[in-house]
Simulated scan of single mutants.
Amino acid sequence: MPTALITGASAGLGAEFARQLAGQGADLVLVARSRDALESLAAELRASQGIEVEVLTADLAVEADVDRVAARIARGPIDVLVNNAGFGLPLQFADNPIEDEVRHLRVHVEASMRLMHAALGVMRGRGGRIINVASVAGFISRSTYSACKAWLIGFSRWANAEYARDGVTVTAVCPGFVHTTFHARMGLASGDEGVPRFLWLNAPDVVRVGLRDAAHGKAVSIPSLRYKLIVAVSRVLPRSLTAGVARRGRV
């Protein structure tokens, strides 16, 4: 049985990755800050899928916790790593507490990088998949969230080409707005961010396409035709224009 380690697994896309990977027969290591939510999901998947599920509580903004997760990966066998943990901040960088911005960077970029490094240490030569949950925001100027996701996309492109010879694929999954608890944690209700209804995606669809594209070795997965078109158009429009449009959403 393959084993998958998923960060931010207590809810949203992370929990959906857990359910779909469990449905494929994978054993799981679930990582998040909330032990109660992880234990509930673990019990559900053990009962419904008959798999082994390990729970590991960690705050990936804390260096010691990242070290513990990296050590778990190094012990192996981890065949799939899903870097999904993350959170949003208001778009006005200059008005946000700098401590929040630093924590945001640590979770989205530093923790993902360190866990990828640990995973490559055990996957090279034996094979494996790394999935980084990025965003279409990474293609559009939209405060520090976009900058973090752009880093994930760029690094995934490079790593996917570099480590293919070692049997390791690295895929950046880039959804748009998804119906999850991501927005609720910011005190926002889905549909209240100035975003048209047709741009909202469902988590099961995003994860299904992301897993399929990762299995096919794609470096970047954009799980929706509408967002593929948005990304294509954004590449030819002036940055000032796309940034202005992006400000319509509040997250």
Results as ranks from 00 to 15, higher is better:
Val133Asp: 13
Leu120Cys: 10
Arg126Met: 08
Ala150Asn: 07
Thr144Ser: 04
Trp151His: 15
Gly127Ala: 03
Tyr145Pro: 05
Ser146Met: 05
Ala150Val: 08
Gly125Arg: 04
Ser146Val: 11
Phe139Tyr: 14
Gly121Thr: 13
Gly154Val: 03
Gly125Ile: 12
Ala118Gln: 12
Ile131Glu: 09
Arg129Tyr: 02
Ala118Pro: 11
Tyr163Gln: 10
Leu120Gly: 13
Ser141Met: 04
Leu120Met: 12
Ser146Pro: 02
Ser143Asp: 02
Asn132Tyr: 01
Trp158Tyr: 12
Gly125Leu: 08
Ile153Gln: 05
Trp151Gln: 13
Arg142Cys: 03
Ser156Ile: 09
Arg129Asn: 07
Leu152Gln: 14
Ala119Pro: 07
Ala161Glu: 15
Ile131Met: 10
Glu162His: 08
Asp166Trp: 10
Arg157Ala: 00
Arg157Ile: 00
Asn132Lys: 06
Val122Asp: 07
Phe155Ser: 15
Gly138Ile: 10
Asp166Leu: 02
Ser141Pro: 12
Ser146Gly: 13
Arg157Ser: 03
Ala159Pro: 01
Lys149Glu: 05
Ile131His: 03
Arg129Lys: 08
Trp151Glu: 14
Arg126Asn: 11
Thr144Ala: 02
Gly154Thr: 14
Ser156Asn: 13
Tyr145Cys: 05
Lys149Ile: 04
Tyr145Thr: 12
Arg126Ile: 11
Lys149Arg: 10
Arg142Gly: 01
Ala137Ser: 14
Tyr163Ile: 03
Trp158Asp: 15
Asn160Phe: 00
Ser156Arg: 13
Ala150Thr: 10
Ala161Ser: 15
Asn132Arg: 06
Trp158His: 13
Lys149Thr: 10
Ile131Ala: 02
Val122Pro: 01
Thr144Asp: 00
Gly138Val: 12
Arg165Cys: 08
Tyr163Ser: 08
Gly138Phe: 07
